[in-house]
Design a protein around this nucleic acid. Sequence first.
DNA 1: CGAGTATACATTGCATGCAATCGCCCTTCG
DNA 2: CGAAGGGCGATTGCATGCAATGTATACTCG
Lengths: 239, 239
Amino acid sequence: MYTRRMAVSSESQPGSAHAVYVALRHRFAEGRYAPGQRLTEAAVAADLGVSRTPVREAIGRLLAEGLVIPAARGVAVAALTAAEAKHLFVLRATLEALAAELAATRQARGQLPPADIDALDRAVDAVEAAVQTHDAHASAQANLALHRAIGAAAGNPFLEDTLHRVWDRIAVTTVANLDDPHWAGAITEQHRAIVAGIRAGDPAAAGSAAKAHIEAAGRAYKPARENEPRTAATTQPTR
Amino acid sequence: MYTRRMAVSSESQPGSAHAVYVALRHRFAEGRYAPGQRLTEAAVAADLGVSRTPVREAIGRLLAEGLVIPAARGVAVAALTAAEAKHLFVLRATLEALAAELAATRQARGQLPPADIDALDRAVDAVEAAVQTHDAHASAQANLALHRAIGAAAGNPFLEDTLHRVWDRIAVTTVANLDDPHWAGAITEQHRAIVAGIRAGDPAAAGSAAKAHIEAAGRAYKPARENEPRTAATTQPTR
DNA sequence: CGAGTATACATTGCATGCAATCGCCCTTCG
DNA sequence: CGAAGGGCGATTGCATGCAATGTATACTCG
């Protein structure tokens, strides 16, 4: 998974500031810090067992990325409005279409290792299996892994980084929407169409399949827990 | 209707950490801190008259954005390799095509204020005038303003933010390449084609014109000062 | 004279302290 | 009963100190 690469955004940073950053993102993803919840430096620092300084740096990055927003006194976990989600999916559709096109182009030129393509097929199978278990978390995980693999196959580190940003922003409030059986059935078919286009080295086919897939995902998207009532205190002050 | 400004990346932050961040970016843009140059927290802090703490935060953000890279002892100003530039222009072409398409769509739906379109025309004129003065800095500035206006006209804050990131990354080492008279002449024509497509409300025309324009810009791009003094070479790009 | 090694030092990374700021709540007045 | 104002407290923002770490230099030995 770590085929790095050109310096676009450094991944393997040491230090607890980066650890805090990763930890916070993880808490967002698993909903432990819910959208709208307020974060205070002291509470996070106590939670993670570090001082406020690395927490400050991590929050600064999250603020720059839009994963948290300025709140009354400090920051709050960002929530996605319906309009924001719509805009994100428009961008995402174009980016994923480009990724599929580039991957197909690399395949046509023989620049894509066969192992990578086989990995795509396995990833599609994994999503299908996960969806059938009706495990939302595992499905989201497998789905993300597939899309990540396509992004990596494109061979453009800046595109890959941009895709990660978009996914992160969407994943803050989303898990795969499996309630709709029609969508759950269509997802694998659409995934296969993308991979087939890549395998065939057909950029147009792969790109349009990817675009259609993301647009369908955008239509199926329902903002999870849109408005959790406010004032979920940070961590319990244990008072 | 006035839609509340979506928080994608907070712009007007107070505090000297943000001021340091802006100041550093400005120094990069005007070449005062050249690519490959090493930055130490203490030196920057002394230069800007603050302590190391806000400098640390600013450098952390620049590191996350890829504008500086980890160096032997701290960080160095990032330089663009030819391969990186190529990848950036591929991404940029797609993003700007999307922006032009969305702007044209908004125009077709009557959602784009006529004043905005007139502003696009004026921006095109401004670029033309600046190019004729052979002032590289002014030309780059005017060109960026035009592209920014198109990005804003698209009405998608996430796309706009992503475009800014790409522009920033390219602008680190680039000014408009005016040496090529053929390119200098074609630039205004291409700009007009994009704006014409938007004004006509024709997404396909606007998008393809934008894509062609950026691809031409990518071909005309020559990495300014391609001296690579072994800065990024701490990790081997074993590609 | 070159290579290997030890040492000193520049520099980062984090914690802590202190002052400034802003929201919240309680009080007070209309 | 509602609104305005003031004080208190929570929280941020920045500076500084100290320890850890990796680099570059100087030194020694072959």
